[in-house]
Simulated assay, not measured.
Amino acid sequence: MLHLILFGPPGAGKGTQSEKLVEKYELCHLSTGDIFRYNIKNETDLGKLAKSYMDKGELVPDEVTIKMLEAEVDKNADAKGFIFDGFPRTIPQAKALDTFLNSKGAKVDAMIALHVDEEELVKRLLLRGKDSARADDQNEDVIRKRISVYNEQTAQVAGHYEGLGRFHQVNGEQSIDEVFNNLCGIINKL
Rank of each mutant, 00 (worst) to 15 (best):
D117Y: 14
K123H: 14
H29G: 04
G129M: 08
A96G: 13
V142F: 09
R89Q: 04
S132I: 11
D55M: 08
R37T: 03
R144N: 11
Y53I: 13
F87C: 08
E63T: 11
N102R: 04
L127G: 07
N42W: 00
D74I: 07
I66Y: 04
K123N: 10
I83Q: 07
L59K: 07
G33W: 01
D98A: 06
L59V: 10
V60L: 10
A79W: 00
H115F: 12
I147F: 07
L127N: 15
A113V: 09
N102P: 01
Y38I: 07
K107N: 06
D137T: 01
R134D: 11
R144M: 06
S132E: 13
R89E: 00
L49H: 04
E63V: 07
R37I: 04
C28T: 07
K41G: 10
L97E: 05
I112S: 00
K67C: 03
S52A: 09
A50M: 09
N39L: 01
D74V: 11
G33M: 00
K56Q: 15
R89L: 05
G33A: 12
K67S: 10
I40N: 06
S148P: 01
Y25K: 08
L46D: 03
K80T: 03
Q153F: 06
D78H: 14
H29F: 02
V122K: 00
H115G: 11
L69D: 00
L97I: 03
N39G: 09
N39A: 15
K104G: 12
V22K: 14
K107D: 15
L114E: 00
G86E: 00
K107V: 08
E26C: 12
E23W: 00
A71W: 06
L125N: 03
T90C: 04
R37A: 08
F100K: 02
F36M: 10
V142G: 05
A50C: 09
A110K: 15
L59N: 12
G129C: 07
L27Q: 02
A94P: 03
R134T: 13
D78W: 02
N39H: 15
S148K: 14
E152W: 03
G47Q: 07
K56A: 14
N139K: 06
V108Y: 05
L114T: 02
R37M: 06
L114N: 01
R134H: 09
D131C: 02
V122N: 00
L27K: 07
S31D: 02
A133V: 05
D62W: 09
E119R: 13
L21K: 07
E23T: 13
L49D: 05
N39C: 11
Y53E: 12
K51L: 09
C28M: 11
I147L: 13
L21D: 05
E72K: 15
N151H: 15
G86A: 05
D136I: 08
H115Q: 14
N76E: 01
E26F: 05
R37E: 00
L30A: 02
K56S: 10
A96Y: 08
H29S: 12
I91T: 06
V142M: 08
K145D: 03
K104L: 13
H29E: 03
A50H: 04
F82W: 08
P61I: 13
E63L: 08
